[in-house]
Design a protein around this nucleic acid. Structure first.
Length: 557
RNA sequence: GGCCCGUUCGUCCAGUGGUUAGGACAUCAGGUUUUCAUCCUGGUAACGGGGGUUCGAUUCCCCCACGGGCUACCA
């Protein structure tokens, strides 16, 4: 047995003493996928450190559409190789969030907690023996070596490098463990000195290699010469090794990820080469940013509540609206597409790589989200508003949910006002949290304005007229009146008390009128709702029902 | 510090070696509607700076500035 074999054996005994699968057996379990030509296999690979990040949702959305548009596969892989940062329950939360936003997972962990798909396990911590088998292979081929440097030692090294204004990192003459004598290594191993396993990079920093990025095209980058850590002392791999192994085994064809990875693609290419694997195509997208003071910065999970998808849920933005907003960021021609087919499912929109190339990070624009959201909600039927609204309220506003469920028919009628049917669609709901306000005055227990308060709102109307106008209206009110008949009556009342029947009439001769029919309508509006701005008055009366209308109007008569 | 990536209205994006530099959101003005939300019409508003190359540069090249990222036994 030569020294290298001895080292491998010692490393094995300490870091992965269990029986390791043979590489050719592993490969047999992960056969090539049989997919139609041009089908893409993509994935979302979050680490379970908390809620899903809006940037994660963004890349997931892009990846999923890119896969499913081509008859391919989209899967969820949980990258939990950093046990220190893991948050219990986070992976289930992530799966649930993806489902909530309509991101369809073909393989991986479902919200229910099961795992589906033949290329698993889809959780990296469950794949430790697989990584170990590949690490062993690198060790045997001299492409990896144990490193005994402590954190303090690498820190000191970095300090020196900074002082000397050199490139930071573990490379060249700084890679001290790379050149340790086998005897030395064996001795350290036998003394149970903690160690990690590093890559023996064959790269030369002065060599430039061409790297093709799906979104940015071909770039010349320096070859990697960093002996990065492949496996940590706890026996779990780092991202670099784990994703290379998994993306190969799982047949990933396209990797869409944040551009913080851009500078490590040369390393990843090298790793693929060491295994003689074909690398996937990479596309690096810029992170979503926010305005902070005078400058932009990346949305931070720790400091920005809006970084979490749960934020949008709490605010009550319909998932469809968030998705449309994100689609708009991904491919700016989406909004033209939407205008051209207002009722089409956004899923039928074809995402392209070309249009994805917005290389500087987009600033999250709540105004635009609101605008898009209003349009999205405007497309919903009253039943859909009710269903989604109630589902939201159950989670975030139990009082509202209770009110809606107890009065589901009435509530749906309210949502039906200026919705559907003849063209004119109300666009004042941007998010489910707006529903509370829309509903309030329709219910007697939350319509609490006193007579004095209502009259106060009507301070600019002649108080005498108010009584007379209401009395006249009450006199002639017929719930069966159609909209135009109803309005004619109001116009007549207006004329009777010195108000113009229309704005035009008033403008033609402002001196002769106290105001317009709008001022008369305002009296009813305030008496019924306590507000000066509401949906169509006629519809409100129809929905409220005669009894309630009479009661509220009488209160001011 | 080193290495990468980037820079078009306030924001998100189009676009071109010669364009009135286009759209959307926001904003402003006007109009429609019984109020409001809509909807319609119109307006304000941009090629970071400096050098080249060129008859001509927002577009190609270089430098600078600015912004972002990486530089962990985190992903």
């Amino acid at each position: 047995m030569d020294e290298r074999e001895k080292i491998v054996q010692e490393v094995r005994a300490r870091m992965f003493p269990e029986i390791l699968p043979a590489i050719h057996d592993i490969e047999k379990n992960y056969p090539p996928r049989h997919l139609p030509a041009g089908a893409r296999v993509t994935r979302i690979a979050p680490s379970p450190t908390g809620f899903l990040h809006v940037g994660g949702l963004y890349t997931a959305l892009i990846s999923e559409r890119l896969a499913h548009q081509t008859g391919g596969i989209f899967y969820l892989r949980i990258e939990d190789t950093d046990k220190k940062r893991e948050v219990p329950g986070a992976s289930a939360l992530i799966a649930a969030s993806l489902a909530q936003y309509g991101i369809i997972i073909d393989e991986g962990q479902t919200p229910a907690g099961q795992e589906i798909g033949p290329y698993g396990p889809y959780t990296q911590s469950a794949r430790a023996p697989i990584y170990a088998a590949y690490i062993k292979s690198l060790l045997e081929r001299g492409l990896a070596y144990p490193c005994f440097c402590t954190h303090e030692e690498t820190e000191a090294m970095r300090a020196q490098q900074e002082l000397g204004r050199m490139r930071l990192g573990y490379y060249g003459r700084w890679a001290v463990c790379r050149t340790r004598s086998p005897d030395d290594v064996l001795e350290a191993l036998k003394k149970n000195t903690p160690f990690a396993i590093r890559f023996r990079s064959p790269g030369d920093f002065n060599n430039k290699i061409a790297v093709v990025d799906l979104l940015r095209g071909t770039r010349e980058l320096s070859e990697n010469d960093q002996d990065i850590v492949l496996m940590k002392s706890d026996g779990l791999p780092t991202y670099h090794l784990a994703h290379v192994v998994d993306d190969h085994l799982m047949g990933t064809t396209h990797v869409i990820r944040g551009d913080e990875w851009l500078s490590s693609v040369t390393l990843h290419m090298q790793l693929f080469e060491m295994f003689s694997w074909i690398p996937p195509q990479y596309g690096h997208i810029a992170p979503i940013q926010k305005m902070d003071g005078g400058s932009k910065r990346k949305l931070s999970k720790r400091h920005d509540p809006e970084a979490s998808v749960s934020f949008y849920d709490e605010r009550g933005y319909p998932p469809a609206a968030v998705i449309e907003y994100l689609l708009n960021l991904a491919n700016s021609n989406f909004e033209d597409w939407r205008r051209a087919q207002p009722d089409e499912d956004s899923r039928t929109f074809i995402l392209t790589f070309e249009k994805l190339a917005n290389p500087s990070g987009a600033l999250f624009d709540f105004m635009k989200l609101n605008d898009i959201s209003k349009d999205v909600v405007a497309r919903f039927s009253a039943e859909e508003v009710y269903e989604q609204g109630v589902a939201w309220a159950r989670r975030h506003n139990s009082g509202l949910a209770e009110r809606m469920e107890r009065n589901s028919e009435y509530t749906q009628k309210i949502f039906g006002i200026e919705r559907g049917g003849t063209g004119k669609i109300r666009k004042d709901i941007a998010k489910w949290s707006d529903l509370k306000g829309e509903l309030e005055y329709f219910f007697d227990d939350s319509f609490q304005e006193s007579r004095a308060e209502l009259l106060q709102i009507l301070f600019d109307s002649e108080q005498d007229d108010i009584k007379k106008i209401i009395a006249s209206f009450l006199d002639g009110y017929d719930e069966g009146d159609a909209s135009h008949a109803w309005f004619e009556k109001i116009q007549e009342i207006a004329a009777r008390y010195g108000y113009a029947k229309s704005a035009k009439e008033y403008k033609a001769d402002p001196e002769t009128y106290k105001g317009t029919v709008a001022d008369v309508a305002k009296i009813f509006r305030v008496a019924l709702t306590g507000r000066t701005q509401t949906p169509d008055l006629y519809s409100i009366m129809q929905v409220m029902g005669k009894e309630r209308v009479l009661k509220r109007l009488s209160a001011l008569a």
